[in-house]
Design a protein around this nucleic acid. Sequence first.
DNA 1: CTGTTAGCGCGTTCAC
DNA 2: GTGAACGCGCTAACAG
Lengths: 342, 342
Amino acid sequence: MATIDDVAREAGVSISTVSYALSGKRSISPSTRLRVEAAATKLGYLPHASARMLAANRSDIIAVTTPLHPDTDQSAHMTFTMEVTKAARDVDYDTVLLVHNDAVEGMKRSAATSLADGIIVLDVDAHDERAVLARQLKCPVVFIGIPADTTGLVCVDLDFEAAAVMAIDRLVAAGRTNIALISHPTETIDRESNFPLRFLHAFEGHAASLGLDAITVNPTEHRAHEAIDAIMTRMPNLNGLVLNTTSDIAGSVSAALAEYGRKVPTDVGVIAAGVTFSTHRFPVPFDTIPLDAHASCTTAVAMLVDLIENHASLPERTLIPPSYIEHGSVTPATVAKTSKAT
Amino acid sequence: MATIDDVAREAGVSISTVSYALSGKRSISPSTRLRVEAAATKLGYLPHASARMLAANRSDIIAVTTPLHPDTDQSAHMTFTMEVTKAARDVDYDTVLLVHNDAVEGMKRSAATSLADGIIVLDVDAHDERAVLARQLKCPVVFIGIPADTTGLVCVDLDFEAAAVMAIDRLVAAGRTNIALISHPTETIDRESNFPLRFLHAFEGHAASLGLDAITVNPTEHRAHEAIDAIMTRMPNLNGLVLNTTSDIAGSVSAALAEYGRKVPTDVGVIAAGVTFSTHRFPVPFDTIPLDAHASCTTAVAMLVDLIENHASLPERTLIPPSYIEHGSVTPATVAKTSKAT
DNA sequence: CTGTTAGCGCGTTCAC
DNA sequence: GTGAACGCGCTAACAG
């Protein structure tokens, strides 16, 4: 409501003095600054958003594209969108949402009209059309997720490869060398969503390099039973299980194992890796290597702001090192019932 | 990149002619309009967002506040946020997200800086601080959800009372008069989230008016077993069940009933009412009276735009009539095993 | 170094 | 169909 004019009048100074006093872009004597600040507070002055955008040639808005694939976990999208928004607010940016069929058109529009200063891309496919677009836009873009070709892009993600290695190493360290992976449903893999494949390949590669004959399964259902059936058939002496899959499937793993008389963690050590959901509410909580939305989004936003404000030159790929959260679902195979490992 | 100046020069007309030709706010002779349009297309002209906002004194942006209560269903939030965004795009508005602790401050900021033309409020509590704020803001606000006091507000929601009545009537029509309601977890009720209470009260009121001694349960867990235990103890001859609860609980109802040897729909007819989730993936899909995010959000956005563009005077409460989707979980009690009802 | 004056950014819209 | 005055804040250039 109040304009910079009102504040200037109230403080008895010129408009530009108000601007400088409030932005701090030039030094102003303490006395006048205080008067200006007092006037601004008194009048509840906040600069008109569009006027500031036009004059400063910046909107302080970040656009977020979140395509909604029917198979992907809605709550995971929500988490990332919210985390980006919170991270953006922490550095004084707002976020506009560019949804699904509007994603590509929205990116163009946002860049062409200078609606947003930069763009965050979520839920990235291996071959994502938004990657092609990002290369032609002069508007800064940061991807959360890694497409197949990262040339000329800036991408942030959990180091899924390291997470897969960490999961195997933890199980092996606990003496569990008959290991299986339940990966994502086939429909997700088929879409070439990028991280399930990265995890799967790293898992198989690391297992092979250790001489383990680990097996992997991609379920078609939304519960674990089918996957566990397949695993138990091929590997009856299973004692380590890695879950890089949906919460529906992970949540029913304990029940599916129980049908074979196998318990977690005594018979089978279980690690959920590269997942956004928490296993707190599961019958048995699992050790988790989280796909930490907070970390990814905070990093991505910080990088985008660096691009916007400093025209920074950033690496194509920034991989966030995995962390390990223990919940007691991986105990040493031989002394499982007696004590914790040393 | 291209400005209105470039288009004017390219088309050989004045700036204002370009503006009128493209906005359609005044009639322009077809020949010049075509030249202007051709020039605009050729140059890929789109008006600079902040310039248009400043000149038109409208941002074509709608703010959406979505506080994140730890107990509420993330995917439900996602659904509503996305539906609002899609509905807004359909009428040429973008959406900015105002998140959680930022919700109240964000509403003030958005209104004071004219960042957004209007505000949509999601996840409304019975006593929501945002209702108080909305009354002082001159910025149009529409609530999706109904707070206790709607004076001076504009609110949209499913008619939960009608949904409760519909659920009971359906069960009664199928000859199922021993009816129980599984309501939301106590933590949600305690927060006075508004709709679970509205549903609960309508359920109890309608049951009483029909002379049924229906019972209601508020679970504390995230699965149905506890609730079913409580119901079966008090009403061993249960034959109708209404679910106005979370997807976790609804999803385990069939299993919990099975522990008492009761099957759906032969022994117990089940209706999920006022819920956002789908029961497609449940072991037995349930008849559903959906809390249709699409309908609510489309209506809310249409009303908000009406407020913004026409300063419309709208009713405090707009209740969306419930609809009923059959999945075969309510069959007549006496002929359940033989045929469908007539 | 502090404060002021003046022009700019880009569309919209009113008056001619 | 056109010229020009806005809308509001930022900032370079200038003066004290």
